[in-house]
């Protein structure tokens, strides 16, 4: 199947006070449609930088990114879910979710905006809270709203930068299940930066482990377990251990 995202030989060097600091040293991988890929690696290895480059929030010095075109043949846009939801606190949940759709870059007609918003509110179980302000919601609900906002533009890939690390373990598991449900409902592709081996094995079809700076792809670990996965299952634990060792080995 045609990959939805091709990352080719991405290089990035930061110029700091004490000279050049290479962050990414030629990173390449593909992501297939409907795939969930987790990006792991020692902290500070440049996972977030890579994600920001893919999101268009930062620039690569070298290398290329190819993204599948969207249904209308236009340039596809990724959407990102930040670690700290980054909802606009002065907008209602509804207005936050449709924020991108109302900008001139998308200019979605208002009835279509409403249709998508209703669907996303239902999908993320926020229908009763469309008029609430973000500070009136729990942490998990805020992050669900942020996921809905990212999904609103129907992006080919949803990028997530440690999206659930600020949540308690129970809410976290709930949100992880939500991601799996969204993938099967909407056929969305996810690229998720994670620090947590259990989360990665619970969610991912494939785990890409990066080496410390300057980052390269150190390992690619496929997770061939059926969904829903059981974290107490020996096969699960075995892969989790393999992932942990890969990340530590990369260090």
């Amino acid at each position: 199947m045609e990959p939805v995202l091709c990352v080719r030989a991405i290089e990035k060097t930061f110029s700091g006070a004490d000279g050049a600091c290479p962050a990414l040293a030629g990173i390449s991988f593909d992501i297939a449609p409907r795939e969930i890929v987790c990006l792991m690696g020692p902290s500070g290895c440049g996972k977030s930088t890579l994600l920001r480059i893919i999101a268009g929030l930062d620039y690569a010095d070298r290398g290329s990114l190819h993204m599948a075109t969207d249904n209308n043949g236009g340039t596809a846009r990724t959407a990102m879910v930040f670690q700290e939801h980054a909802l606009f606190p002065w907008l209602s949940v509804y207005d936050n979710i449709v924020y991108g759709l109302r900008l001139s870059a998308q200019r979605v007609p208002e009835d279509e905006v409403a249709r998508r918003a209703e669907a996303l509110l239902a999908l993320t179980r926020l229908s009763g809270f469309s008029r609430s302000l973000p500070h009136q919601l729990s942490g998990g609900m805020k992050q669900r709203a942020a996921v809905a906002r990212a999904l609103a533009g129907e992006p080919p890939v949803v990028l997530m930068d440690e999206p659930f690390s600020a949540l308690d373990p129970f809410t976290r598991r709930e949100l992880e299940d939500e991601v799996l449900r969204i993938r099967s409902d909407l056929k969305t592709t996810f690229l998720i930066v994670s620090h947590n081996p259990e989360e990665a094995v619970y969610l991912a079809d494939r785990i890409i482990v990066l080496s410390p700076r300057p980052a390269r792809v150190a390992a690619e670990i496929p997770v061939r377990l059926p969904f829903p996965r059981n974290p107490a299952d020996p096969a699960f634990l075995k892969i989790r251990e393999e992932v942990t060792r890969a990340v530590l080995g990369a260090e």
Binding site: A79, E84, A86, G100, L103, S104, G153
Partner: peptide
């Protein structure tokens, strides 16, 4: 105004004026 709010606007390809109208101004109000 939080950097992440401005980045959300950037992520959705807001124009300079839209970024100002929808993020900077309400954030500074």
């Amino acid at each position: 105004v939080r950097r992440s709010w401005v980045e959300v606007a950037g992520m959705f390809h807001a124009t300079t004026f839209e970024r100002f109208r929808t993020v900077i101004l309400p954030g500074a109000l």
